[in-house]
Amino acid sequence: MSKDSLLSISNLTVKFGGLTALDDVFLNLESNQVVGLIGPNGAGKTTLFNAICGIVEPTSGKLTLNGKSHDWPATHELTSLGISRTLQGVGLFPDLTVAENVMIGAQKFAKTGLISAGFGRNKLDEEELRGRAQWALERVYSGSLADKRADALSYPDTKRVAIARALVSEPKILMLDEPAGGLGAQDIEWMNGLIRNLRSEMSILIVEHHMDVVMSVCDELYVLNFGEVIASGSAETVRRDPAVIAAYLGTGVA
């Protein structure tokens, strides 16, 4: 493990009843690196994301953050630890405005409790969070969407707003769950550009099916199949790995 490792996972196993969803999985993410998780459906990519996010409980495994051993975080602690994540289903709140949707991601900056809200602190909070939301929207070039209702957005716009909601907490690690899923060629190109821009300020972990996205933005790839890491390394190495070819083409490994 190199010394600027931000997030590192070793020996991670997740079992659901008798089913082993992840088996002895490892992963390493360094500063300003883009790491992709690929693999066939059901390979355990989302489970790995969920384990990092405290949504599923690991059966065993070690987690290191900033080079120090750390407990598996609870979901609501993630943003304070500098980790933020988008979901496959996007998950915007339809009856809130875009700005409000993004503000939800900025909870860690809210200072007001319920009691102090009664004493006018709230106004300051509201302004600060709104400012941060605007800043996050500008970063995905969607500042003009702020006052629209989320259910009035086009699909590609909802994807941008979901990323803004993840960015507003100023993460050091951004986890993107299928950022290009459901997008057309032009929007995929746009997403590639965004990811390349963002990597100058943070590390990015991506689950993605679109091979051209993965190959064009990722520095390093981990290939999962049946819950195990079957290959890892640079895009070029992984692409030529016989185990990967077999997993994707469905032929037995000679």
Binding site: I55, T75, L78, T79, L87, G91, F93, I104, Q107
Partner: peptide
Amino acid sequence: YAPEIAQLSGI
């Protein structure tokens, strides 16, 4: 509305 997302947002 969406407990999982709220939680991921630090709530």
